[in-house]
């Protein structure tokens, strides 16, 4: 495919068009997209994929602008996939991420793509995984994936990346109770942002809270989880972040964890694809047979019980 060549050459328009294909809901686009991804995946590039998640307004975008600017001055090439949470009832959306990444979006060494989440689980939209494969093939050193963290979403997001980072704000220590154990399994780095001005004391306190909570939940064979203090606005703490990232990548590679994760993620991906296909197939069958309405009528009339109906429909559908 010519498209593949152009992606590998790093042509902006080709990368963008390819991402459109993988995000498309059209069948014909999906077919091309599968071919494309199958080819690209054969020759993985050198990208490290990093997830940034956190509650709305903690400064994810500002951090990415700030950390990203730092990285491009070190001559790294940076791809950013921003999943914009602003979805509306009507399904339309306003993608305003670029207004928060003004400096970095001008830089020729960046590629920034926003995608509306349309309420998809985990704030990860269809095609995010594929988009990162495209950016990898195009030669980007780092791929950032920004998602809004709301409960379960970390799990989905962390399945797309090599390093998962949770950004939190000063004074969020209390929320730790709620997040508890799950979080330590998914996040590699905790970044306490807004470590500046009046918020400095609070930020340090929050970092300490995280550190003690994390050591409490730490499994024996696990690496120490990192807690870092930064100010996205003042651009402080950025060297620590890149140093920590590089350290974790090196360590994980040495211990084989890096490859292991990618293998697990592949497994998860295959499982997901299979489930998706089955689910959409079943949905089709269900609606074509019209069993649901037929049997619920019977339940309403007390002819059969609810559970009898469920069993009958299931058997008939899977036949």
């Amino acid at each position: 495919m010519e498209l593949i060549e152009n992606i590998q050459k790093g042509e902006r328009a080709a990368i963008a068009k390819a991402i459109t294909l993988v995000e498309s809901s059209k069948d014909s686009d999906q077919q091309i997209s599968r071919q494309l991804i199958s080819e690209l995946i054969k020759k993985p590039g050198k990208s490290i994929r990093i997830g940034f998640s956190g509650p709305p307004g903690v400064g994810k975008s500002t951090f990415i602008e700030s950390f990203g600017s730092y990285l491009v001055t070190q001559n790294y090439k940076l791809g950013i996939l921003a999943i914009d949470p602003s979805s509306q009832i009507t399904g339309g959306s306003i993608l305003g991420d670029k207004t928060r990444m003004v400096e970095i979006s001008k830089n020729p060494n960046t590629f920034i793509r926003s995608t509306p989440s349309r309420g998809a689980l985990g704030g990860i939209s269809m095609g995010t995984r594929e988009a990162s494969i495209i950016l990898d093939a195009a030669g980007y050193d780092f791929i950032f994936i920004e998602t809004v963290g709301v409960g379960q979403s970390e799990i989905v997001a962390s399945n797309l990346v090599d390093i998962f980072t949770l950004i939190v704000g000063p004074g969020s220590g209390d929320e730790l109770q709620g997040i508890k154990k799950g979080i330590t399994e998914y996040a590699d780095i905790f970044i306490v942002n807004k470590n500046d001005g009046e918020l400095k004391i609070e930020a340090s306190k929050t970092a300490a809270d995280y550190k003690s909570a994390l050591s409490y939940y730490k499994k024996l064979d696990e690496l120490e989880k990192q807690v870092l203090l930064v100010s996205a606005i003042k651009q402080t703490g950025m060297e620590d972040v890149i140093k920590t990232i590089n350290q974790i990548v090196d360590q994980n590679k040495q211990k084989g964890i890096f490859e292991e994760r990618r293998a697990d993620q592949l497994e998860y991906w295959i499982e997901e694809e299979v489930k998706n296909i089955i689910a959409s197939d079943i949905t089709k069958r269900l609606s074509s047979k019209g069993n649901i309405s037929k049997y619920s009528e019977k339940v309403m009339k007390n002819e059969i019980s609810m559970y009898e109906a469920v069993e009958t429909i299931t058997k008939d559908t899977l036949k």
């Binding site: 509306q88 009507t90 399904g91 339309g92 959306s93 306003i94 207004t99 926003s114």
Partner: peptide, 18 residues
Amino acid sequence: ADMGFDVDMGPLFQSPKD
């Protein structure tokens, strides 16, 4: 956006190149 479009909003003061 209310009518269903996906709208990207650029920041102020962009150059034509940006």
